[in-house]
């Protein structure tokens, strides 16, 4: 069940996220669900896989804003890292591990729905 208690248990800073939703819990949960379904996750994965680092940066940056606003901490940490990596990409930068971390964190939160 995805709710404030399970999100909190999963490491999200629910109080901060809720405050930004003017403490409207229904709104918060709806937006978290939207965030988890955000198409930027697949855009990010595809872009990195195909080597389009600019598109990858834009997707990561967008996800960073959203997860930060909702205080989805487990997602925010690796997303912030990959955003910085893609901002000034170095030739030997390894995004694979971060993509995996992001996917794992997202799956963990998606699992709360069941």
């Amino acid at each position: 069940m995805l709710n404030t208690a399970t999100l909190r248990a999963a490491g999200c800073d629910v109080d901060a996220g809720l405050a930004r939703c003017v403490n409207n819990e229904a709104l918060y949960i709806r937006l978290v669900n939207m965030a988890l379904d955000d198409s930027n996750f697949s855009r990010l994965t595809d872009a990195v896989a195909s080597g389009d680092l600019k598109a990858g940066f834009e997707a990561a940056h967008a996800l960073k804003g959203v997860t930060a606003n909702l205080s989805l901490t487990p997602l925010l940490t690796p997303i912030t890292e990959i955003t910085e990596l893609l901002r000034h990409p170095e030739p030997d930068a390894d995004c694979g591990a971060l993509i995996e971390a992001i996917t794992a964190a997202r799956d963990k939160l998606l699992a709360l729905r069941d």
Binding site: R20, C21, V22, N24, L27, L31, M34, A35, D38, A62, G65, V66, N69, L70
Partner: peptide, 11 residues
């Protein structure tokens, strides 16, 4: 980002 719009809209 729709989420950001909604969030800010609510505020």
């Amino acid at each position: 980002e729709e989420i950001n719009r909604e969030l800010l809209g609510a505020i």
